[in-house]
């Protein structure tokens, strides 16, 4: 590893991570001795069959779940619990229905004690970034699913985290909105220069957004695999290389 890489913010290291749950009195090993290095500013996609532990891994990374063994290091320092350098975006937008779009986006900052006017000034910047400037005063109930999810993204960005954790953020959106949002996520990632760890069940989304794809297996024996996506950006879904990469990932999944 070079010195330059070390000085960058948003580096995530996962060491010997294990996590199990008790399910009906039985122990369910979800993550076993997982090792992972995510470079600062990298976009990593986590894919895998349903129930393989994608959400669990992301929740451990976010500090919402305590690992059984192993540790998480951010920029070389071990971390416990939630922290200001990480922000998580869930599959549901989880907006507070009694706050306007502006209030929701400013929420993370006001919770941290920033005065409302300064929090709102910064929130406005990110509301513009996700293209919702006209809806600043709207309440969550007045938004479509895609708009609400963008509010959630803006709220996470407003606290200016070094690491953005996303758990199937576009999973509940319709196909058209999803495509637009993927473009938007690619742009936001480029502009904000954050480390992005994105859980998705959509292989095309993973190839479109990620530098590397982590495939989590569900059978006990097999190992997680990392696949480099060496495609020029901005990416084009119809390019032969893109299509070939998708075919390769599907083959890895055993779909072809």
């Amino acid at each position: 590893m070079s010195v330059v890489e070390h000085s960058r913010r948003g580096e995530v290291t996962v060491r010997d991570l294990s996590k199990s749950f008790a399910l009906n009195g039985q122990r369910l090993d979800v993550l076993r001795d997982l090792q992972l290095e995510v470079r600062g500013g990298e976009a990593l996609a986590i894919v895998g069959p349903s129930g393989c532990g994608k959400t669990t891994l992301l929740r451990v990374l976010a500090g919402l779940e305590q690992p059984d063994r192993g540790e998480i290091l951010i920029d070389g320092h071990p971390v416990q619990g939630v922290g200001t350098e990480r922000a998580i975006i869930f599959q549901e937008p989880r907006l507070l229905p009694w706050l306007t779009v502006l209030g929701n986006v400013a929420f993370g900052l006001t919770v941290r004690g920033l005065p409302a006017d300064r929090a709102e000034a910064r929130a406005r910047h990110y509301i513009r970034l996700v293209g919702l400037a006209a809806f600043e005063k709207a309440y969550p109930r007045q938004l479509s699913g895609g708009m609400a999810q963008r509010v959630g993204i803006a709220r996470a960005l407003t606290v200016q985290p070094g690491i953005l954790l996303l758990d199937e953020p576009l999973g509940a959106l319709d196909a058209m909105t999803k495509l637009t949002m993927q473009e938007e996520l690619a742009r936001i990632w480029r502009e904000e220069k954050v480390t992005m760890i994105l859980v998705t069940h959509d292989l095309e989304e993973a190839i479109f957004l990620a530098d590397r794809v982590l495939m989590l297996p569900n059978e006990r024996g097999s190992q997680p695999r990392l696949i480099d996506i060496r495609l020029p950006r901005p990416r084009d879904r119809s390019e032969p290389d893109f299509v070939a990469m998708r075919r390769r990932l599907m083959a890895e999944f055993g779909l072809h």
Binding site: A62, G63, L64, V82, G83, T84, R86, A87, I88, F90, E92, R94, L96, W98, F107, G108, T110, V111, R112, V159
Partner: peptide, 25 residues
Amino acid sequence: RKLIEMAATFGAGRATIFRRVVLPA
């Protein structure tokens, strides 16, 4: 609970969660 968890990820403590999430809800 999901809203409470959301607030917690932004570093909200018990008192803040009570004031900003539980009470208005």
